[in-house]
Nucleic acid binder design. Sequence first.
DNA 1: TTATTTTGATTGAACGTTCAATCAAAAAAA
DNA 2: TTTTTTTGATTGAACGTTCAATCAAAATAA
Lengths: 194, 194
Amino acid sequence: MPKVGIEDLRRRQLIAATITSIHEEGFANATISRISKNAGMSGGIVAHYFDDKAGLLAATMRSLAQDLLRETVKRLKAAETPEERIDAVILANFSVEQNDPETVSAWLAFWAEARSAPALWRIQKINERRLLSNLCHAFRQLLPEDEARMAAAGLAAMIEGLWLRCALSHGPLTIDQARLIARDYVARFLNTSA
Amino acid sequence: MPKVGIEDLRRRQLIAATITSIHEEGFANATISRISKNAGMSGGIVAHYFDDKAGLLAATMRSLAQDLLRETVKRLKAAETPEERIDAVILANFSVEQNDPETVSAWLAFWAEARSAPALWRIQKINERRLLSNLCHAFRQLLPEDEARMAAAGLAAMIEGLWLRCALSHGPLTIDQARLIARDYVARFLNTSA
DNA sequence: TTATTTTGATTGAACGTTCAATCAAAAAAA
DNA sequence: TTTTTTTGATTGAACGTTCAATCAAAATAA
């Protein structure tokens, strides 16, 4: 039989090559031949592991989402109070892996593409709902219902906005500053004195 | 001799058709033949008015940026206090035109594409800097320097994040709610009593 | 062990499609 | 007329998909 465990390895290699290709040449120029060459393989291999290009792209977006989920769950498990859980979500979104330029390029490309690709749209929606749900649950233990919902929606939007700015604009805004701004926003809801 | 005024008209028609095509079939499927057919013209017309496809795309993104700028300037001119100027920026970004589904699809597509297309990247950067500069200037008249910078960066990120969320999630977050959340954030900086 | 069989992994090329760009000619306006 | 506008056909390149053929490794049998 073929080498054991090769399937998972190849799939991960092709997904990584897809992210790299999207970052370096743009979504439109991330062709099967370029992606597979980038992974050191032949063009036909994509059909073997992902059926077609759409399958590879969907798998890549799912992989990005899972990385963020893993990071979030890891930190949530270590959190004990609602305040710590909110901070865990902030820290997960501003972790080193999530702010890698290639990751950001890929996320952006998939966001745009999802608007006219139902398969990708579903993945995006699941992610979005999870972030909001995590924040909502924690805020509800600290604030009245309507204030909690506002804080959760505001923080979710702010995290995404800060995250984008960090990655898109080289220089002006660092990850450390972004974390600070997000935490400050939370503090303005939780501290009556400030 | 030349049909009077036809050039500007055709350019605007082709740009509008480009935005519609991107929204309806995605950036990758917005081909010259589909765009021109969408505008009720022949394929060759694009070369005549924009040289090539890249020229049409750059002109389309510039047109989107100018629409936002016009909207912002209009509201800034009517504002008299720093508070009103901050609100003007918020209102401009959440105006009806800027949240039209076609406009959002196009912005998102260009945003993603700009990462690997220098010509588009420059347009994006100018826009970004203008938003931050407008906010920074207003906040500096109301807050100490370091707090003003934090408020400006935070609000800029939040506006982008909320705008993105309105665009990506059909339903949960409305433009009205987004406006409310952004204004609440500003109030938390300006009102010592809250 | 050693030889054989089985299975999946991988390639590279062929196929049909689609694209952007080009251009000669027609249509329209001045 | 002269100039601009507009068309629609053409071209060559690049794309995604498909597939027969080859290869390497594992499983099986002796």
